[in-house]
Design a protein around this nucleic acid. Sequence first.
RNA 1: GCCCAGGUAGCUCAGGGGUAGAGCACUUCCUUGGUAAGGAAGAGGUCUCGGGUUCAAUUCCCGAUCUGGGCUCCA
Length: 641
Amino acid sequence: MQEIELILPDKSVRKIPAGTTGQQVAESISQSLARKALAIKIGGKILDLSQPLTTGGDFRIITPSNDDPDALYVLRHSCAHVLAEAVCDLYPGTRLAYGPPVDEGFYYDLASPKPLSDDDFPAIEKRMAEIIKEDRPFTRCEVPVEEAMRRTEGDKYKRDNAERAVARGDKIISFYANGEPGKNWEDLCAGPHVPSTGRLKAFKILSLAGAYWHGDQNSDQLTRIYGVCFADKEGLQKHLTFLEEAKKRDHRRLGKDLDLFHLEDHSPGMVFWHPKGAFLYNALRNHVRKVILARGYQEVITPEIVDKSLWIRSGHADKYNENMFKTMAGDKEMAVKPMNCPCHIEIFNQGLKSWRDLPLRLAEFGKCHRNELAGTMHGLMRVRGFVQDDAHIFCTEEQIAPEVRDFCVLVKDLYADFGFQVAKVKFSTRPEKRIGSDDLWDKAEAALAEATKLAGLDAELNPGEGAFYGPKLEFVLKDCLGRDWQCGTIQVDFNLPVRLGATYVGQDNQKHHPVMLHRAALGSIERFCGILIEEYAGDFPLWLAPTQVRVLPISEKFQDYALQVLSKLIAAEIRAEVDNSNEKIGYKIRQGEQQKIPYLLVVGEKETLGNLVSVRKRKEGDQGQQSLDDFVKVFKLGLPN
RNA sequence: GCCCAGGUAGCUCAGGGGUAGAGCACUUCCUUGGUAAGGAAGAGGUCUCGGGUUCAAUUCCCGAUCUGGGCUCCA
């Protein structure tokens, strides 16, 4: 009999006859391991315990663990099947589409005859618990293509899934039954699964959403049920607690609590910044301004409302029309700019440019408006009116790579100033809806790829997601729930300079079109503020805190002294205020802490007599009494250089 | 734009076909205090908007709008 070699996690090698199942291997190691085992992983592929092993390789037995992504993967996938059976039981006529595990849990896309709502969750969870209690085996059943076609006859989604499997070249199609095939509920599915429903120890249905069949908005709208599943109750509870905690960091929550900004019905997707939020907003702008001016950028300011003819020439009227706000000036059609690039080209086009002028870096904190679809807005993260820390670098082809590299360094440095690391970099290539010839796109993509390499970045390929005028690099940051948001970006564009007639005189005394690099480091100030608020949970570093110091008089008798302290702090360029409410000191401390103010200075009789302040530093507590001058010195040490 | 759920006091939310509720916040008074909520009183609402059903609608129905979770789209 043919033998295969399993390399166990401790690197020891175990020889077994081909056809042995994972379950048998587990039993041969130890009974307790066999009882715990959920699945096995061989050669990087997860298999059911009951599947016969046919090839050797790195081998391990997957047991329940909240720290093992493979364990969670099989548990969640299996839990999705239990969910699907429960829904099919409760709402006969339900048709199923996909039910995969995802990073934080699982979902199932389905079409039920009755619209589902959150009110249905208890019933669904109850039915799931019953199925789990019955501890039915997940039974794999492999059938030839013809049989799979017969079984999925008339089932639009499953038939389509089966056909896709065949198109991929699958000769055998697998089904999984929650119990006995032909008797219990079953689903077309590649697996793998845990041995039985009873192995699911901790799950919860979280939410309901709509999703398009195959992500195509012209296709069927399905109902997506999201759930989570963990190895045990503690894991589930920890996750639910995490979600609760995330809510407290939510920038929309903190925007209200810390009085930073608000959004209102009159202007959906456009932000009303309150004084403290406006401070933060300007702090970001000022910091970026300082950094880019030191790196060879020049700042410009351009109009927000521009005649339609420019947008026709730039291609926006054709490719970006539905996203533009339109307005009239008399009988002239105008549009509110959705991007700054055409305006910057207009500046470039003033006067003759020589090759000696390149690279020319024009920067603008440019306010853009985009009429985004109603359902896409999200707090500060996705708005209709926003300011980009934008710039356009006009350069030669040879200058692309060094300019991209310099920009990548700038992004890295700038994010580090805010205490962030670049989470992810994506390389997005030509979209379907685009301008320019394929030759130019080939050139642009190759140039960006080379520059990415030069910058030493590990970029993930994101095909078809580029801008309509060029490929781009995207710098992605995460919000409190781990959702991705594109912040910085740089895009190589051979198209717009040609369309808008930008030229420079080369060393050969001929006119040439420059290459244009579109780039934004923070992306939009709005979105970056949102990320910043969540990252710090409103507990901003000293240099970004809208209020840095609050002075708390013990009683109204010491208000005059508090005001003296205030004016000295303001003179020292410290952002300070006085709490002169008629409350006890305990209450004022509480308020100051809740507003996350870095320093609270308590002043009462003792301080008044000694010309002192009692310092309380956020998160570190009481720092004792100090002279005001000493406090200012310590305070200044807390600011970045 | 699509699916589901919401919109009640400044905030967080309860309620329900017949004069609108709580806690916090706010104002005034008492209190003048020493490091995370002192006490009392008061004020505050066209129950998102528009239609419909009804003797009567904040409540039920329809539509609009905004918000939330997703999908699609994007900085």
